[in-house]
């Protein structure tokens, strides 16, 4: 196909001679005619394509993305600094302890300081690998934010909710987690942080972490393996020489009881399944058992056999009767 002659022929000022030549060429057989038809229809249809010109997919994707509204499930996204500040402000109001100075700590003067990455888990437990290789497992409905230059000048994170951390060792760049009014600082270890309405709890499974009030380094302690630390809403700190491994049952899928008073066991079970607990019986026994990835129904049935209590669940409540 001589595209040059075709293009000349398609122009309104085409010479008669060119048209005739083309017509002679295409008259030879059907496949040549088809080919000429194809080019001609491409030519005609391309005129209609002007309609595509004024549509800015990029800009309109931005609009749609905004309308989606709902946070996205552990897909990282970039949020502008102002929005980020608003979130921090909300967290400050909530925690009533996080100072604005903290925001400044987190705001590094990187090349593009106004952008942060966030991860949200919504209704599912989700794991996120950070740029330094550390892995954070977010419990349901939890979020974390970090600066874009995470792992360059700092390893700072803000957490809302509950998460389990497996931090890569790096003594040069401490890993810091701001949760509510608390700050946990580590160089590399395994621990979990839970933000409750009245406290922030850290639970350490290996190594040790420094645990302090975010805006007052004087109120601080070291929490080591198999210990847990609490910072309460009134800015007091408390350390316990034990961990309740069932506090991270959401991550491990395991509920473990070893000579545990039944009432505590029931509390852990209720918490694990996000239920209320109503006890209408006196519970003096203790329980030794292990449940792995079992349904609430299964667990309650087993418990009834072991304790000879009557245990039932209604919509949101586990009811225990003699």
């Amino acid at each position: 196909m001589n595209f040059k002659r075709v293009s000349r022929t398609l122009d309104p000022s085409a010479r008669k001679e060119d048209k005739e030549k083309l017509s002679r060429w295409s008259g030879v057989n059907a496949s040549r005619r088809d080919e000429l038809d194809t080019i001609t229809s491409l030519w005609e249809e391309s005129r209609q394509c002007v309609l595509f010109e004024g549509i800015d997919t990029e800009a309109d994707w931005g609009k749609v993305r905004q309308k989606l509204g709902t946070p996205l499930e552990t897909r990282h996204k970039v949020i502008p600094f102002r929005k980020y500040l608003i979130r921090i402000a909300a967290a400050v109001l909530f925690a009533a302890g996080l100072s604005l100075a903290l925001v400044m700590i987190l705001r590094h003067d990187g090349k593009n300081p106004s952008y942060y990455l966030s991860f949200e888990s919504l209704g599912q437990v989700k794991s996120v690998q950070l740029p330094d290789g550390s892995v954070v497992t977010l419990n349901k409905n939890s979020s974390l934010w970090h600066n874009r230059d995470f792992n360059r000048e700092s390893r700072d994170i803000i957490l809302q909710g509950e998460a389990y951390f497996e931090v890569e060792h790096n003594p040069q760049l401490p890993f810091r987690v701001f949760t509510g009014n608390s700050l946990v600082e580590v160089t590399g270890t395994r621990f979990s942080i839970c933000e409750d309405t009245s406290f922030v709890r850290v639970l350490v499974l290996s190594g040790s972490v420094s645990f302090q009030l975010a805006d007052n380094p004087k109120i601080a302690t070291t929490v080591s393996k198999d210990e847990s630390g609490y910072i309460f809403r009134d800015n007091t700190l408390e350390k316990q020489q034990q961990v309740n491994i069932n506090n991270i049952s959401w991550k491990t899928g395991q509920l473990v009881f070893h000579k545990t008073p039944v009432v505590y066991a029931l509390q852990d079970i209720a918490h694990h399944f996000n239920k209320e607990l109503s006890v209408e019986a006196s519970l003096n026994d203790s329980l030794t058992a292990q449940f792995t990835e079992q349904s609430l129904e299964d667990i309650l049935e087993e418990l009834q056999l072991i304790t000879s209590l009557s245990i039932h669940q209604t919509d949101n409540v586990i009811v225990v009767k003699p």
């Binding site: 595209f3 040059k4 075709v6 293009s7 000349r8 398609l10 122009d11 080019i39 491409l42 030519w43």
Partner: peptide, 8 residues
Amino acid sequence: ETQISKAL
């Protein structure tokens, strides 16, 4: 014309 034919 050359460019148009190239486009085609």
